[in-house]
Amino acid sequence: MKALEWLLLTYKMPPEPARKRISVWRKLKGMGAVYMQGGVCLLPKSDDHLRRLKMLENEIAEMEGEAVLFTAAGLDPRQEEKIIRRFNSDRDEEYGELISKCEAYEQEIAEETRVRHFTYAELEENEQEFAKFKTWFAKIEKNDFYTAPRANEARDWLVRCEGILDAYAHNVFAAQEENVGGVARKSDGA
């Protein structure tokens, strides 16, 4: 079995302005990098990651920082497993946040259903929220290089939320038809 390879970026930024350090941190986290310690992070070796890290290396230099990019490999399978656990732990944390939002979404729609708050405006808001969940999941999944344990749970929650949204939409359409039908009956009888 061939050893896994990673790209290792080490960098140092001037302490001020903090926004520059934060910008670098956000870009690396957005790529799915794991921090081994401050200013030292890893990504699986790929052409895309190499290109993006080289661009970031140049940006760091332009911000008066220093960066060095290496290819790295674990010395034994235990080291590889340790690194993979770190990647999976970060993704599981992100999946957990998404799952938590999905649970709140389910509760919110259950409450709207309980009080019969069936409006098109509310449906549109719920559709937008669900679209955000799908985008968020896709972003996490893109950085889920080693299939984190909570990936399937998060995927199941998305399916569940879609079903909840469909049921809510059905209720909204039925309530709106009922309202239109009620107005029409009153007009016909006058």
Rank of each mutant, 00 (worst) to 15 (best):
I60S: 00
D48V: 03
E66M: 11
M55G: 14
E64C: 11
K45W: 11
L53H: 03
L53V: 00
L69S: 04
L53W: 00
L50K: 13
D48L: 15
T71I: 14
G39A: 00
L50Y: 11
E59Y: 08
L42N: 01
Q37A: 12
G65Y: 06
G65P: 04
L69E: 06
L56F: 02
E66F: 10
V40T: 03
M63E: 05
N58P: 09
A67G: 05
V68M: 13
G39T: 01
A61V: 15
D47W: 15
G39E: 08
K45T: 11
E64M: 14
I60K: 08
M63N: 03
A61Q: 02
V68A: 04
A72P: 08
C41Y: 02
L50N: 06
E59D: 15
I60G: 08
N58E: 14
A72F: 02
V68P: 09
E57R: 01
L43F: 11
N58M: 12
M55I: 14
K54A: 13
S46E: 08
M63A: 11
V34P: 08
M63Y: 15
N58Q: 15
K45V: 07
E59T: 11
V34N: 06
I60Q: 01
Q37Y: 09
L69A: 06
G65V: 00
G65T: 01
L50F: 12
E59L: 13
M36G: 10
L42W: 07
R52L: 02
E59N: 13
E59V: 11
M36N: 03
M63K: 01
S46F: 10
V40R: 09
K54G: 06
E64P: 01
P44M: 10
V34L: 12
L50E: 12
A67N: 01
K45P: 09
K45M: 14
Y35T: 02
N58A: 15
E66Y: 08
E57I: 07
A67H: 07
M55E: 14
G65A: 00
E62V: 10
V68L: 14
I60A: 07
A72V: 09
R51F: 15
S46W: 02
L50I: 04
R52D: 13
F70D: 03
Q37V: 07
E64Q: 02
G65Q: 10
P44N: 08
V40S: 04
L69R: 07
T71G: 08
V34G: 09
M36A: 06
V40C: 09
C41Q: 05
G38H: 09
R51I: 02
A72S: 04
T71V: 15
A67Q: 06
P44S: 05
L42S: 08
R52A: 03
N58H: 15
L56C: 02
D47P: 01
M63F: 11
V34S: 00
C41W: 07
Y35S: 13
Q37T: 12
L53G: 09
T71M: 05
L56P: 09
L69H: 04
D48R: 14
L42M: 05
D47G: 08
E66D: 07
S46V: 00
A61N: 13
H49K: 00
D47T: 15
C41A: 10
L43N: 00
L56Y: 03
G65D: 01
E57A: 10
G39Q: 05
C41S: 10
A72T: 12
R51S: 13
Q37H: 06
V40W: 00
L42Q: 02
L53F: 09
L69D: 03
A67E: 10
L50M: 00
N58W: 05
